[in-house]
Nucleic acid binder design. Structure first.
Lengths: 228, 228
DNA sequence: CGACCATTTGATATGGATCAAGCGATGTGG
DNA sequence: CCACATCGCTTGATCCATATCAAATGGTCG
């Protein structure tokens, strides 16, 4: 279905246990990821981790964009989240990843061993609270996403545009890292419906599409009105 | 829309701060809810808490069933979860509830102050871990529910029946506490579609319907095959 | 230029929503 | 005790949003 050339990159400096030693004096739980992790790079469409694989690492996006997803029994792919610079992903409660994760484009991530974070939380209640709080934010995000999936195509696309605008637009112009197929699989729609909805928004002067990946919000109010 | 007579029950022994004092020697975080809480009763369709209300309490179902939901801007209701005896609900990371909660039928719950749990977690890392773990399970549940909402009506109903069978059936007969409207709002379908799908399953000999609230799984394998 | 891939556009099909009516259980008042 | 209103559920007829199938367009890279 999704003919994605799997260009899996070999991790840069993988089992880097020395970084854990550095973690001891650090305060502030997962917020401290940047000071204790090592960097890894992935090229476009490379798998970062797979569903049911042991969740050995936690990741923080430095540059690029990441998608997490599950493949349904009928072959469809449901994308559960997009992760952009600054976002943390791959943190699990259990031992295995619940989703797969792939680089959307070229991605740099910071990586920390899950065990380092978990053992820190055993000693430091503040770190434990941060873990809880992170998972709580993730829970909210997924709940929001769930609500999205019972709305009309127009509403879903509008929500998506507003979300992306908030998350990655400095100005009113958005540079999307992901393809139409990614968007469709995120919104639970087909690529055709996403495309048609976009053209409709263009014809209503709500957005401008200088190119398929570049979107300018001309009337964000109209997008908001579609939804809440 | 949903003409539910709001029979809100006045809490039994509400601000019961003495119970917090009792909490100090208790170990095991939210698992200890039963030893530190006070009981409350709600009659059918009574509101337990409302969206955006301060999340002062955490609840554990003793008897009966609870639904949590959000009302969408277009007036539809999306039920995010059903909580059955033994289940905990209403635990928030932030200060306000993200959903409303109502008793489906007559309900008895145990209630603990959120502040008691949170402050316990500040001292006891093990309790903090339990909080994290609870929210993590909730996250998984919602992720699963999200996947449900992109499936066909048949698949959604089948999943629902299997879920309920697992959660509240001792035998292969299920006694549903919730109405068809509740089921529909949980599955993101209309009441008519739920009903039609059930009759279809009956005609395929997959289930038997002695009454609308009583469901016997005749061929659970067939239900499973519809899905994963 | 020409192959390739992502995206858009067009034509048609269909699953589930909507609108409307019927049915069975439960309860109420005469 | 029965006529009748009410409520939750089922069934039927039709409509519509989105999926599906198919083709055209456009951008990118050799």
């Amino acid at each position: 279905m999704l003919t994605q050339t799997d260009l899996r990159t070999v991790p840069v400096s993988h089992s880097h246990t020395s970084s854990i030693a550095r973690s001891a004096p650090v305060r502030g739980g997962i917020g401290a990821i940047e000071t204790m992790g090592s960097q890894m790079k992935f090229s476009a469409n490379a798998e970062i981790f797979g569903e049911d694989e042991p969740a050995e690492y936690v990741y923080k996006v430095v540059t690029g964009a990441v998608r997490t997803y599950k493949i349904l029994n009928d072959g469809r792919r449901q994308i559960s989240g997009f992760y952009l610079p600054g976002d943390i992903f791959g943190l699990e409660i259990g031992k295995e990843h619940q989703c797969s994760a792939e680089a959307i484009n070229g991605v740099t991530v910071l990586v920390v061993r899950r065990s380092a974070i978990v053992s820190l939380a055993e000693r430091d209640c503040e770190a434990a609270r941060e873990l809880w709080s992170f998972t709580g934010r993730e829970l909210r995000r997924v709940q929001e996403h769930m609500l999205l999936l019972v709305k009309s195509a127009q509403q879903r696309v509008a929500s998506f545009l507003l979300e992306m605008s908030k998350r990655l637009a400095a100005t009113d112009a958005i540079e999307l890292p992901m393809s139409r197929q990614d968007i469709a699989d995120y919104l639970g729609l087909t690529i055709e419906t996403v495309s048609r909805t976009m053209t409709q928004l263009v014809s209503e002067q709500t957005i401008v599409l200088p190119s398929s990946r570049r979107i300018v919000l001309r009337n964000a109010g109209a997008l908001r009105r579609l939804n809440a």
